[in-house]
């Protein structure tokens, strides 16, 4: 298993005719194998940019991303990605979507079938394997996306607001599923979210980012994800230590927003 190192990553978008935008400034962190990191921040804090850099879709202006000893220069099957929505291949069935990675890699059909069946069982979609994905609900589609990513057996899974488009109830169920998959597969996971509760519940570590320029504001180590594996999620989220953390972080983000609004009214 491999360690992910993000070293001094800065990202500046230069658009002709506009002031350059510094989306990320000197972001560094290390993620050990099997860790579950959630990244939280107000919109515009560069969290999606950061994830895209780790995924290899964007090259940072400065700094580098290294997985174990290999420099990240582009996307690869080592770093799987789960998007918010719209990334499933709607011309394929559930089964074919999940089998996409292995079949592109030319794995034998039988082996692929085994992997796919097992994963569909795990995410609770066995009865839907031959359905076209567009007939599934949003929550089911995200289950397919998770299974598709896992079928490829990546070293690290990057999730870009994977539950952002779901309704509150489905969201809670899916949080449980993500924890379960994390436990069962032992994968390293980075999860981006704008929900404080989700970030607290789904992060062994939590990084709070601040905007303009995007940077790491504060990092926490959290016990809730581990607890979520055995305890009732509702109880965890209603416990005083959870609420305390939630309020602390919310206050911090509110202050950030205030500061930005303040800056804006000064400059305008």
């Amino acid at each position: 298993m491999k360690t992910l190192t993000v070293e001094g990553v800065s990202m500046t978008f230069t658009i002709p005719g506009m002031d350059p935008i510094q989306a990320l400034k000197d972001v560094s962190f290390r993620l050990d194998s099997g860790e579950l990191l959630s990244i939280l921040g107000p919109s515009g804090c560069g969290k999606t940019t950061l994830l895209n850099i780790v995924a290899g879709f964007l090259a940072p202006t400065e700094g580098k991303v290294v997985l174990e000893d290999k420099l990240v220069t582009g996307p690869s099957a080592e770093r799987g990605m789960v998007f918010q929505q719209g990334a499933l291949f709607e011309w394929l069935t559930v089964e074919q979507n999940v089998a996409y990675g292995p079949s592109m890699a030319g794995k034998p059909r039988r082996e692929t079938k085994e992997i796919v069946d097992h994963l569909l069982e795990t995410v609770g979609l066995r009865d839907f394997s031959s359905k076209p994905v567009y007939q599934l609900s949003g929550g089911m589609q995200q289950r397919v996306a998770l299974a598709r990513c896992l079928a490829n057996d990546p070293e690290i899974i990057l999730m870009d607001e994977p539950l952002g488009a779901l309704d509150a109830l489905t969201r809670e169920k899916m949080q449980g599923l993500i924890l379960k998959l994390w436990k069962e597969t032992g994968k390293t996971i980075i999860l981006i979210t704008h929900s404080v509760e989700e970030a607290l519940f789904l992060g062994e570590r939590l990084m709070v980012m601040a905007p303009r320029p995007g940077r790491i504001m504060k990092e926490y180590g959290l016990p809730f994800a581990e607890r979520g594996l055995v305890e009732d999620p509702r109880e965890i989220k209603a416990a005083s230590d959870f609420i305390e953390k939630r309020e602390e972080i919310l206050t911090m983000i509110w202050d950030m927003e205030e500061e930005i609004m303040g800056h804006r009214s000064e400059t305008s």
Partner: peptide, 12 residues
């Protein structure tokens, strides 16, 4: 997102 998904699933 579809193109990105395919590349990070190892497609050429």
């Amino acid at each position: 997102s579809k193109v990105h998904a395919a590349y990070s699933l190892g497609a050429s």
